[in-house]
Amino acid sequence: MKFVKTVSLAIVGSALAIGGASAQTKTVKIATEGAYAPWNFTTPAGKLDGFEIDLANDLCKRMKVKCEIKAQDWDGIIPGLTAKKYDAIIAGMSITPERQKAISFSRSYANGPNGFLVAKTSPLAQMPGTGQTYNLDTQKAETEKVLEAIKPLLKGKAIGVQGSTIHAAYAEKYFKGVADIREYKTTEAHDLDLAAGRIDAVLADSVAIVESLGKPEFKDYVMVGPGATGGMLGDGVGVGIRKEDAALRKMFDEAIDSALKDGTISKLAVKWFKVDIAPKS
């Protein structure tokens, strides 16, 4: 993975004054994981690619700044931001109250449910709630009812999740003591264990699962279970920014609004995910 040389921030032209302070930027350093296809990933040639790489470049053009995008391990991505190793995070990061204690977020640029990836021959393939999506903010009782219905199927099963994610927290809250929850450093790692039969299911973002299903080794697998959004799963995916960088947050908000209004984010979502997960409001 490549790491980009740190450069200073300055806004092209006049300064943006926020709360009496001015901030200037001409180059914005952005961290992404580079291991969360199709959101972001590293090609065999070492190049970063994916939905968020295309999006980051588009947003920077709208903001009239230069983008420098670097790969950063997921488990250190927020500490790296607060330590000022880069200026923003664009890495499939959901906006949650817990993360908002440490950093700020732009408005959301994507929002999609989670799901389970399992073998077609697994008993889990008959999981109740498949094809249904629930919102934990507006349908908490309905969501928890269907989750209770799938617990008997999950009893004693091993479920893989990426550590330090909303999916890990969701599994811990709803399935701890029922299933064996195993945390992995990357989604690629839990996919490998699923394909090898070392775990029974993967719980992840639905678009990441769709990406896995496109691989030859997962031709006999299927996405099942009730999808959920909202609540502890957050208010969609946004750009992570330091709390004090209000000017930069405003720039990203305006650029995302523009990209949503002209359909760019919807087009990029369909290109990479085969489905439009752009926020509708």
Rank of each mutant, 00 (worst) to 15 (best):
A15E: 13
A196P: 04
A204D: 13
I53F: 04
T143M: 14
L248H: 01
P38Q: 08
S104T: 10
M223C: 01
I95K: 13
K243Y: 05
V161G: 04
T264N: 09
K250Q: 10
I77P: 04
I209T: 02
G129R: 07
K219G: 07
S212A: 06
E144W: 07
V222A: 01
I241K: 01
L59E: 01
T43P: 11
R182G: 04
T187I: 09
E98C: 08
D54Q: 02
A15V: 11
V224K: 01
D205C: 00
K157R: 12
L153W: 07
K120Q: 05
D191L: 07
P128L: 03
Q139Y: 14
A45I: 10
I159W: 00
E33Q: 13
R107P: 10
Y221G: 00
D49L: 09
V222H: 00
M127S: 04
G76D: 06
T165E: 05
V239I: 09
I18S: 15
L233G: 10
N111D: 15
V239M: 02
F218W: 06
G225N: 00
S212F: 00
P123V: 03
T133I: 14
A17L: 13
G225A: 00
D205Y: 00
A10R: 12
K64N: 07
P128K: 03
G236D: 13
V270S: 06
I53N: 04
G50R: 04
Y184H: 04
K101C: 08
Y36V: 12
Q100C: 09
F273M: 02
W39M: 14
V7I: 15
M1E: 09
A15Q: 09
T43K: 13
K120Y: 02
I265L: 13
A189D: 14
L194I: 00
I89K: 01
K173Q: 09
L260V: 14
